[in-house]
Amino acid sequence: LEELEQFARTFKQRRIKLGFTQGDVGLAMGKLYGNDFSQTTISRFEALNLSFKNMCKLKPLLEKWLNDAE
């Protein structure tokens, strides 16, 4: 759980530094990986307001997006 919290904080910082909005991330993930995510989902991930199971599902996709975006 602590690792997920740390990743969520780091993800938000890096996303902002790269100049992407939460909506940009959701749209890009849909185009790149075929998984559409709303701005609300990205927001809830960053705020740790998703279930642990959903956080675990999203983490690898967000890590991949972040690596591809950098």
Rank of each mutant, 00 (worst) to 15 (best):
E2A: 05
E2G: 10
E3G: 05
E3V: 08
E3D: 07
E3P: 01
L4G: 01
L4H: 15
E5R: 13
E5G: 11
E5H: 15
E5K: 15
Q6A: 07
Q6W: 07
Q6E: 10
Q6M: 14
F7K: 01
F7S: 03
F7I: 02
F7W: 07
A8L: 02
A8R: 04
A8T: 09
A8C: 14
A8Q: 01
R9A: 10
R9K: 13
R9V: 06
R9D: 08
T10W: 05
T10V: 11
T10K: 12
F11P: 00
F11Y: 01
F11K: 00
F11R: 00
F11A: 05
K12W: 03
K12S: 12
Q13M: 12
R14C: 06
R14N: 14
R14K: 14
R14V: 06
R14S: 13
R15E: 00
R15K: 00
R15W: 00
I16R: 09
I16V: 11
I16G: 07
I16T: 14
I16H: 05
I16F: 05
I16E: 15
K17Q: 07
K17N: 14
L18K: 04
L18I: 07
L18W: 04
G19T: 02
G19H: 07
G19P: 00
F20V: 06
F20Q: 08
F20N: 02
F20E: 02
F20C: 08
T21S: 10
T21I: 01
T21Y: 01
T21W: 01
T21V: 02
Q22R: 06
Q22F: 07
Q22L: 12
Q22S: 07
Q22D: 04
Q22N: 02
Q22V: 09
G23F: 13
D24E: 07
D24S: 07
D24Y: 07
V25S: 02
V25P: 00
V25I: 07
V25H: 00
G26V: 12
G26R: 05
G26D: 15
L27W: 07
L27N: 12
L27M: 11
L27D: 12
L27F: 11
L27T: 07
A28Y: 07
A28L: 08
A28C: 06
G30S: 15
G30P: 04
G30H: 12
K31P: 05
K31I: 06
K31H: 06
K31V: 06
K31A: 12
L32E: 13
L32K: 14
L32Y: 13
L32D: 14
Y33L: 12
Y33C: 10
Y33R: 05
G34C: 05
G34D: 09
N35K: 08
D36T: 15
D36Q: 10
D36G: 09
F37E: 03
F37H: 07
S38T: 13
S38V: 08
S38Y: 03
S38L: 05
S38K: 09
Q39K: 11
Q39R: 12
T40Y: 14
T40A: 10
T41M: 15
T41C: 15
T41G: 04
T41A: 10
T41V: 14
T41I: 06
I42A: 01
I42R: 00
S43T: 10
S43Y: 09
S43D: 10
S43H: 11
R44F: 04
R44T: 12
R44H: 05
F45C: 01
F45R: 00
F45V: 02
F45D: 00
F45S: 00
F45Y: 05
E46P: 01
E46M: 00
E46V: 01
E46Y: 00
E46S: 00
A47E: 15
A47G: 13
A47R: 07
A47F: 05
A47P: 01
A47H: 05
A47T: 14
L48T: 06
L48W: 05
L48I: 11
L48P: 02
N49V: 07
N49A: 12
N49E: 15
N49Y: 03
N49F: 04
L50A: 07
L50R: 01
L50F: 09
L50E: 14
S51H: 10
S51F: 01
S51T: 13
S51I: 01
F52K: 11
F52M: 07
F52E: 10
F52R: 14
K53G: 13
K53D: 10
K53C: 07
K53H: 14
K53P: 09
K53M: 09
K53V: 12
N54G: 12
N54W: 08
N54R: 13
N54A: 10
M55C: 02
M55Y: 06
M55D: 02
M55A: 12
M55H: 05
M55N: 02
C56S: 11
C56I: 07
C56V: 11
C56T: 15
C56D: 10
K57W: 09
K57T: 14
L58F: 13
L58T: 10
L58H: 04
K59G: 08
K59S: 06
P60M: 04
P60C: 04
P60T: 09
P60H: 04
P60S: 08
P60L: 05
P60W: 03
L61H: 09
L61M: 11
L61R: 11
L61Q: 14
L61K: 14
L62M: 14
L62Y: 08
K64L: 10
K64Q: 14
K64S: 08
K64N: 04
W65V: 04
W65K: 01
W65G: 01
W65S: 02
L66R: 01
L66W: 04
L66F: 03
L66S: 03
L66A: 13
D68C: 10
D68Y: 08
D68T: 06
A69V: 08
A69T: 15
A69C: 12
A69Q: 15
A69F: 04
E70M: 08
E70R: 05
E70K: 06
E70G: 08
